[in-house]
């Protein structure tokens, strides 16, 4: 396994006015990795990708792409990025759009195999404006591969796709990775990150909260939400977040079983006990509120 670093940030901070989008982030992307960037909206995932793609420069710190600045167009010859599908040029045909994008790269790929890989062969001569949302999404992802990249950044690649289309797309990404390609993927869907990524970087509030293997991060994300009606509660172990709505208390915990045992042992009066899997978003909010639990 090679350890060549394709992209990295060193101590990068990015502000938008008073808002700190990224706070001293240091991250290496090594050749051959399939990295999932996980985090709620506004966590800083898109800012991070924009920095790597050369759209933004850091307020402080350095961003490197293949050893140079991503702001230099020449450094971007070996990357691929997904456009937002809402912005695709409506009047162009699918094949033309692919040709147009690949014309920017020294080693643009042939459009036939590329469209084939993403299940777009039948749509080659259709105007983009006439495609369905899912078809546009697939084209947007395909465009990231049009320049025969070594490293692709896929921002929410399967949002709005049905199950079949999602699996087709995942296969496309896996094929690319199997041939030695490097992938950085952002997603809201834990399932998607689980299906694809080997390494997971959890971002929240502009910081890297966790950077580990899929398995380790899955444990962290295995957070439960215990809801009950109770007037007063003692200090309970393993609670990473508390939210009160009148009589109702919601406790976010890493170990729901232990929490319930402890509640019973403490002999506090409660009713309406409910244990639920948290959404990813809730889990991140809890983790973000108490980053110490990850230490």
């Amino acid at each position: 396994m090679t350890t060549e670093i394709l992209a990295r940030t060193v101590d990068v901070t990015r502000r938008y006015g008073d808002v700190v989008a990224l706070d001293r982030v240091t991250l290496d992307i090594t050749a051959g990795e399939l990295v999932g960037l996980l985090g709620p909206n506004g966590a800083g995932k898109s800012t991070l990708i924009n920095l790597f793609a050369g759209l933004r420069s850091p307020t402080s710190g350095t961003v490197e792409l293949f050893g140079g600045s991503p702001r230099d167009p020449a450094q971007r010859r070996l990357i691929g990025v997904t456009p937002q599908d809402t912005g695709l040029p409506q009047a162009l045909k699918v094949g033309e759009c692919v040709d147009f994008v690949s014309a920017h790269f020294p080693a643009g790929v042939a459009r036939g195999p590329l469209l084939e890989r993403f299940g777009l062969s039948d749509l080659e001569r259709r105007q983009i404006g006439s495609l369905s949302g899912g078809q546009k999404r697939r084209l947007a992802v395909a465009l990231a591969f049009a320049g025969d990249p070594r490293l692709v950044f896929l921002d929410e690649p399967t949002t709005g796709l049905d199950v079949d289309a999602r699996r087709t797309l995942w296969d496309g990404v896996r094929d690319f990775h199997a041939e030695g390609g490097t992938v950085v993927l952002t997603s809201h869907y834990l399932e998607e990150i689980e299906a694809l990524a080997h390494r997971v970087v959890v971002v929240g509030d502009g910081r890297v909260l966790a950077d580990d293997t899929m398995e380790k991060v899955r444990d962290i994300v295995g957070v439960r939400r215990v809801s009950l009606t109770a007037a007063e509660l003692p200090e309970l172990p393993g609670v990473v977040g508390v939210e009160r709505q009148g009589e109702r208390v919601h406790l976010v915990t890493l170990d729901a079983d232990e929490l319930v045992r402890e509640l019973v042992r403490a002999d506090v009066p409660f009713s309406g006990l409910e244990v639920r899997q948290t959404s990813l978003e809730e889990a991140f909010l809890a983790i973000t509120a108490r980053p110490a639990v990850l230490a």
């Binding site: 759209l55 167009p73 937002q84 912005g87 920017h104 790269f105």
Partner: peptide, 10 residues
């Protein structure tokens, strides 16, 4: 959004 995308091309 197509405009910023084109900016990511080399």
């Amino acid at each position: 959004p197509w405009d910023p995308y084109l900016r990511t091309l080399p």
